[in-house]
């Protein structure tokens, strides 16, 4: 202990203690926090050699290739599931599209909840996979992909030249606006969202914690089609909202409500504190507000030296 005694009065000792404490907290946190799945998500965003998607025909053979290579090892060749993956014969094309297009599948860790990440395949390949699934595995069971809701934005890398990309993008934007603005009953959309969704995904769509280390993800990046599919299929801990309970046009109202809310600029200022709400506001009041005011108080009352 002599070593410490000798140095603890050093002018820098205080900073060293603070740094050490931070390091201890950091390491402790990394041990407590669940595996690095979320960090992995970024790494997993491995790019695929994308082919231009101008070919609209579906290539079932390629779908089978993907299935055999990347899905069958867990879900089985027939989709019947295994010890570490569920039976997905009745899941439906919507479930496949949701899981694969949000990058949650293929998963590297079947025990953990998968975060959203870049999909492993491009749109065309996913379509091929779905076609194969619907023809060979699901055979019509389960909900189909809700084509009416706009899906992924076109990616520049999927197109050969700027022009065709611009055209596809324009087409997409039009479809998107038509879908979101086609909803007119804010009351219904809002009430559906606040009564059935906000308790997990939060009023702003920012997500929230669940029990057992699960969480409800942020839905800002989700396309209208993915939100629709999530409601239809109930991925993970999420319950199912069938087209009978919430009809397609009401689902459109709901999606429109949350997407419009998300897109709205913050009338109260450029800093929206991630729309977390009161916890962030209190934090800012203490750390920014009170600190600045006290700094002013110190300026006013600071001792003056003769040369001041």
């Amino acid at each position: 202990m002599k070593w410490i005694t000798a140095r603890r009065r050093h002018p820098l000792a205080g900073y060293v203690v603070v740094l050490l404490a931070l390091a201890v907290f950091g390491v402790g946190y990394s041990l407590v926090a669940p595996s690095a799945d979320r960090a992995e998500a970024q790494v997993m965003a491995a790019q695929t050699g994308a082919d231009p998607a101008d070919d609209a025909t579906v290539d079932i053979e390629e779908g089978r290739d993907i299935w055999v290579r990347s899905c069958a090892s867990c879900h089985g060749l027939n989709g019947g599931g295994s010890d570490n993956a569920p039976d997905i014969t009745g899941a439906g094309g919507a479930a496949v599209d949701f899981q694969v297009s949000t990058g949650r599948m293929p998963s590297s860790n079947p025990d953990a909840q998968m975060p959203r990440k870049e999909p492993a395949w491009d749109r065309e390949e996913i379509d091929n996979l779905i076609a194969y699934y619907e023809q060979e595995i699901g055979q019509g069971a389960g909900p189909a992909v809700p084509e009416a809701a706009p899906g992924d934005k076109p990616e520049r890398s999927d197109f050969e030249d700027e022009e065709s990309y611009e055209a596809a993008k324009e087409e997409y934007d039009e479809a998107y606006d038509a879908y979101v603005e086609g909803a007119s009953d804010t009351q219904a959309g809002m009430q559906l969202y606040l009564a059935n969704c906000a308790h997990c995904h939060s009023w702003s769509g920012a997500g929230g914690g669940l029990t057992g280390g699960h969480w409800a993800p942020e839905i800002h990046d989700a396309t209208p089609r993915q939100i629709y599919e999530a409601m239809l299929t109930g991925p993970g801990q999420m319950p199912v909202f069938t087209d009978g309970a919430i009809e397609p046009e009401d689902k459109q109202e709901l999606i429109s409500y949350v997407k419009t809310l998300q897109a709205e600029p913050n009338a109260g200022g450029i800093f929206d504190l991630n729309r977390v709400g009161q916890v962030a506001e209190g934090f800012v009041a203490w750390t920014v507000g009170l600190t600045l005011i006290i700094a002013c108080a110190i300026w006013i009352t600071a001792k003056q030296r003769a040369h001041d």
């Binding site: 219904a188 009430q191 009564a195 059935n196 199912v240 009978g244 309970a245 009809e247 009401d250």
Partner: peptide, 22 residues
């Protein structure tokens, strides 16, 4: 009825496992 849309609820609207509605 479904909260928000006042749609009368049928049994089959909740036929799927895990279905929920307020």
């Amino acid at each position: 009825v479904v909260e928000g849309t006042d749609k009368k609820i049928r049994e089959e609207d909740l036929a799927e496992d895990g279905a929920m509605i307020s």
